[in-house]
Amino acid sequence: MKDILSEIIAHKQIEIAQQKQAVSIEHLQKTVDAMMQEEADAQPTDRVQHRSMKRALATSASGIIAEFKRRSPSKGWIKQEAQAHLIPPAYEAAGAAALSILTDEMFFSGTLRDIRTARPLVNLPILRKDFIIDEYQLMQARIVGADAVLLIAACLTPDRCHELTLQAHELGLEVLLELHTPSEFSHICKETDMIGINNRNLGSFVTHVENSFRIAEQLKETIVQINFETAPVLVSESGISSSETIRELRSTRFQGFLIGETFMRTENPGNALKELIGEVSAFNS
Score class of each variant (00 low, 15 high):
164 L>R: 09
2 K>Y: 08
168 A>T: 10
230 T>Y: 05
238 S>L: 05
13 Q>H: 13
65 I>P: 01
169 H>A: 05
70 R>E: 03
79 K>Y: 04
60 S>V: 04
120 P>V: 00
129 K>V: 01
267 E>K: 14
217 E>G: 12
101 I>L: 10
138 L>P: 05
276 L>V: 05
281 S>M: 15
123 N>L: 01
104 D>E: 15
180 H>A: 03
225 Q>W: 00
171 L>V: 10
226 I>K: 10
227 N>Y: 01
127 L>T: 04
135 E>I: 01
250 R>E: 13
262 T>F: 10
69 K>W: 09
77 W>N: 14
95 G>Q: 09
197 I>F: 07
177 L>H: 05
83 Q>F: 00
222 T>L: 02
103 T>E: 02
258 L>F: 06
248 E>V: 00
63 G>I: 08
124 L>N: 11
222 T>W: 07
171 L>N: 10
1 M>C: 06
94 A>R: 11
227 N>W: 03
120 P>L: 04
90 A>N: 05
92 E>V: 09
177 L>T: 09
98 A>Q: 03
277 I>N: 11
211 N>A: 14
11 H>L: 01
83 Q>Y: 00
137 Q>S: 07
47 R>W: 00
273 L>I: 11
198 N>A: 06
92 E>A: 10
103 T>W: 02
246 I>L: 07
104 D>V: 12
257 F>L: 09
130 D>K: 06
43 Q>N: 09
231 A>H: 13
97 A>D: 05
277 I>S: 10
8 I>Q: 09
128 R>Q: 14
233 V>P: 00
164 L>E: 03
62 S>R: 02
57 L>I: 02
120 P>E: 11
248 E>T: 03
105 E>I: 02
190 K>M: 06
7 E>K: 12
44 P>W: 09
167 Q>M: 13
204 S>K: 05
17 A>S: 14
234 L>I: 12
103 T>P: 04
